[in-house]
């Protein structure tokens, strides 16, 4: 008996069998995955900018080497993710054009500036830490190429998070100026990191269907709570504080309670009014436009080679 493709698809989702590129899938499932994976890829690429901002000024050769390697890893993640998204039938160039035109989004967190060296540690610890919460969940996402890309990415990201924490730990044990720099970075990055999990579950438009399709496996609020619980413990080792007077262990819930996110700021940054939205997109567009002649030359040369081989 030939099974209806839609039933087969649902059956696979039900039984935790990954959906693969050549499998039949609902158009909306394809679109949702393209949107999400390409957005994720764009976040890796745009994310290279705030961190790359400190490579030439890293305070020691060791830190410089670690930072270069880290930013390079982000580029690598972008590459796997673009490849994963391409298996769904959209070319990398189309995705990049959508980024540059503003049609595609990337994580809002990268619209905040890296003002001091401590921001590099804070990004590693808080931003990569928040990203990992989401990414660990995505290693079990239903689309096979995305899940497999996430497994590789998670290994590197957890390494980055430890490096970020370690960089802050050194600051927290340093001079008064270093301690102040550390606390200031945590103060500035804490709330934007919480915003990375997206709107509250009650406000999240794409969540329901994504959960049914097992693209997403935990809700925004669930992930955010896990993150708060983790960081609220880790910060004790740093001897620093989180900028939230409402942060308090709740014995009944066995979770930390925490204050309300500034949702107005959240939506402003999403809409393009964050401190660096314009700079980030401008930098990406500039790199792409200035690289055009290089890409053209490479293509022209490759064509000549093929022609030569054909004789």
């Amino acid at each position: 008996m030939v099974m209806d493709p839609e039933m087969l698809f649902r059956d696979k989702i039900e039984n935790e069998i990954k959906i693969e590129p050549k499998d039949w899938m609902p158009e909306a499932y394809r679109k949702t995955n393209i949107r999400q994976i390409s957005q994720h890829a764009h976040s890796e690429i745009v994310g290279m900018l705030p961190e790359g901002n400190w490579i030439t000024r890293a305070p020691s050769l060791k830190r410089k080497a670690i930072l270069i390697a880290k930013v390079q890893d982000e580029g690598g993640h972008g590459l796997y993710l673009y490849s994963a998204a391409e298996t769904l039938g959209m070319s990398r160039e189309e995705m990049i054009n959508d980024l540059h035109s503003g049609k595609a989004k990337y994580s809002s967190i990268f619209n905040y500036p890296t003002l001091t060296w401590a921001d590099i540690g804070a990004i590693g610890w808080l931003v990569d830490g928040a990203a990992i919460m989401n990414q660990v969940m995505l290693t079990r996402t239903s689309y096979g190429p995305y899940a497999r890309a996430m497994v590789r990415i998670c290994k590197e990201e957890s390494f980055h998070q430890r490096q970020g924490f370690e960089a802050l730990l050194v600051l927290s044990r340093g001079t008064e100026a270093q301690k102040a720099m550390c606390q200031d970075a945590i103060n500035r990055w804490w709330w934007p990191a919480l915003m990375m999990f997206g709107p509250r579950d009650t406000e999240s438009t794409n969540s329901d269907q994504s959960m049914k399709w097992k693209i997403k496996r935990k809700s925004n609020d669930e992930l955010r709570q896990n993150f708060v619980d983790m960081i609220a413990e880790q910060i004790k080792t740093l001897g620093m504080t989180l900028p939230d007077p409402h942060l308090k262990w709740n014995e009944e819930r066995k979770h930390y309670d925490f204050g309300e996110i500034n949702w107005d700021e959240f939506w402003q940054v999403v809409k393009g009014n964050g401190p660096c939205n314009k700079q980030r997109l401008d930098a990406r567009r500039k790199a792409w436009e200035e690289g055009e002649w290089v890409r053209e030359a490479a293509e022209a040369y490759a064509r000549k080679r093929v022609d030569k081989l054909k004789g």
């Binding site: 690429i45 290279m48 900018l49 790359g52 490579i55 030439t56 410089k64 270069i68 930013v71 390079q72 580029g75 690598g76 972008g78 590459l79 673009y82 930098a283 500039k286 790199a287 200035e290 690289g291 055009e292 290089v294 890409r295 490479a298």
Partner: peptide, 14 residues
Amino acid sequence: SEWCGHGPVLEQDI
């Protein structure tokens, strides 16, 4: 290192 994040294409940036 000034190229990092600004390369002409991702593979070459890396």
